[in-house]
Design a protein around this nucleic acid. Sequence first.
DNA 1: GATGAATGAGAGTTCATTCAT
DNA 2: AATGAATGAACTCTCATTCAT
Lengths: 193, 193, 193, 193
Amino acid sequence: MTKRSGEKHQVILDAAVKTFARAGYHRTRVSDIAGEAGVADGTVYIYFNNKEDILISLFQNIMNRFVEELRSELVLCRDANEKLEKIIDYHLRTLGSKPEQARVTQIELRQIDQKINEGISKPLLTYFRLIEEVIEEGKKQALYRPDLDTRTARKVIFGAIDEVVTCWVMSSKPYSLAELKNPVFDLLIRGLQ
Amino acid sequence: MTKRSGEKHQVILDAAVKTFARAGYHRTRVSDIAGEAGVADGTVYIYFNNKEDILISLFQNIMNRFVEELRSELVLCRDANEKLEKIIDYHLRTLGSKPEQARVTQIELRQIDQKINEGISKPLLTYFRLIEEVIEEGKKQALYRPDLDTRTARKVIFGAIDEVVTCWVMSSKPYSLAELKNPVFDLLIRGLQ
Amino acid sequence: MTKRSGEKHQVILDAAVKTFARAGYHRTRVSDIAGEAGVADGTVYIYFNNKEDILISLFQNIMNRFVEELRSELVLCRDANEKLEKIIDYHLRTLGSKPEQARVTQIELRQIDQKINEGISKPLLTYFRLIEEVIEEGKKQALYRPDLDTRTARKVIFGAIDEVVTCWVMSSKPYSLAELKNPVFDLLIRGLQ
Amino acid sequence: MTKRSGEKHQVILDAAVKTFARAGYHRTRVSDIAGEAGVADGTVYIYFNNKEDILISLFQNIMNRFVEELRSELVLCRDANEKLEKIIDYHLRTLGSKPEQARVTQIELRQIDQKINEGISKPLLTYFRLIEEVIEEGKKQALYRPDLDTRTARKVIFGAIDEVVTCWVMSSKPYSLAELKNPVFDLLIRGLQ
DNA sequence: GATGAATGAGAGTTCATTCAT
DNA sequence: AATGAATGAACTCTCATTCAT
């Protein structure tokens, strides 16, 4: 009789994305999320520990799916160059097609206190590691210079993509995010070689 | 003969950097700043409209000095390549030597509501424009390829530096930020050519 | 089966009358009202928008009941003279039996900002109109002179009663307010004829 | 060299009437009064003990002049009837010609805490006594009935005039206050006889 | 599991008043 | 006498969280 467990969990998460994207994390009240989700305030606390937990769960949810899907796309690529291109393509395409998620990822997520960052940094680290794996692979494949500092390269790559997304989120979005793939790739790829 | 003018203003600003860096913007109470500054709570409101105003003033203060000093260093450079190197060097060196300011710039500043972002984006735009000028100059000097998209290049450059700084701020800082200048520069410069 | 609805609303209103009468509107803190009502501070804001709203609701509450009851008593009167006598009697009797309400009505209510007076003047206007109706009736019944200015007569009647009440409230109340009915009536009635 | 003492006292008082009438007692800050008077905030405290003292001084100032002038006009009257007419006339004429003072007298003055009311009630009592003297005189002159309760009659008379003024102050003043003298007098005089 | 009324700690802000100059 | 920068007590209102139903 009861609908499948976890349904409300997702309903609340979806409502949270909308309200966070609309009003920002700090301006959003838990009752706003509950209202948007069509549940009582107290119900939110059955599925989440507190307000911050919602934001973190949101991000973990998004990032896990993000990395998982990205990984499955990467297996089709032949070499590191193709993989790097795919990463940029996938990153821009995914966030570009979900402006609300993009806003939460780029803006709202950075509004929470440092101590709880662990919940955020863990899924993010998986993504970082994935990028670093590709760089290492490129070095093994002799595509990238052997003295390349993998860690720094990862920061540069991620930072570049991230900034491109943030600028797009903050703008009135008069252009498609995905179309920036080529220019960004061109700028980054030669630095690695 | 007392140098009253602006004295307290700066004292409060200095206290704010410390407290924001220590506890974060949202966790800092106005009375904490006042206490750190050695003034009464009400005094803060003689010099600033509200808490947010302090954070914004802080950033404008920092950024104006940042861009001004950077500009004066750039005149000594011969070509766009040297200028770009100088930008990266100056950016990393400056924030690397002021960890408290760096934390406020990289973390706390991103905690305020979007609507008031104008106070933040304006001084930032000046910096963006400066980077774009250098890129344009490099194109005129035939150092960078003519089909390079200046705007995207700027985002990639700024995003890369910014991410490098953020990672350093979030870390326990076991390395000097300035020493990343060469690897970052090497990664970016070839993408422009 | 619990008669929850509106229960706390009234409890808070009752507590507000007491505290306003005791300490005055401006000297009363919302937490005082909450304490007197036996609820948390925040609960007050579930039922009222703000402190001023409590005072206004209080008055509307009182005045609505006042006019309603007065109206029901007036139907028993034969002519305008009897009705006027009843008005004076009822006004003095009602406030005379509720010194706390009287103090709020005569003193505290006049402490709020003009702009929000609408909430106050509306129920008061109902009372004014009722008095004017009786005067008009008296003119139709040829009890009062036809050239009598109804509006001015109402002001004189209400002002007289109101002042009598105010003096009583401000005094140590060594006399019963109701016993002033006859002298006041005698003074007013002949002016109308 | 110093201008005559008390000059600033009056300047501040004049500024207070304006600001109180404009914004109301509680909404007026001491710095507003000082600004309007063209003096420093601290200067206000050389001439007055505190904010309330300003309001009270204001009223005493007004009332003393009021009663004094009224008294001097009354000596020209032949009997109690003429005197009562003069009182009503003078009261309405005076306040009707000074809307700002009227607003302070009718509205703002009633906003202060009871305990300090002595400063207000004393000069008011002088006015009350003056009215009662006229009533007593009328009784002695056999113009008014001997069983008339002087105290109550005074309350009725003052309350009536006061209400007429208050209604005018609260209105957009589309009529002259002075023109209400006759209707008010007609209404009151017969009640005394 | 679901509800939503109730809680109460918490913080930003105001402004009357003071006092060193 | 005059100034006005500085003070700091005071107070309203918000909202994340709880828990009896």
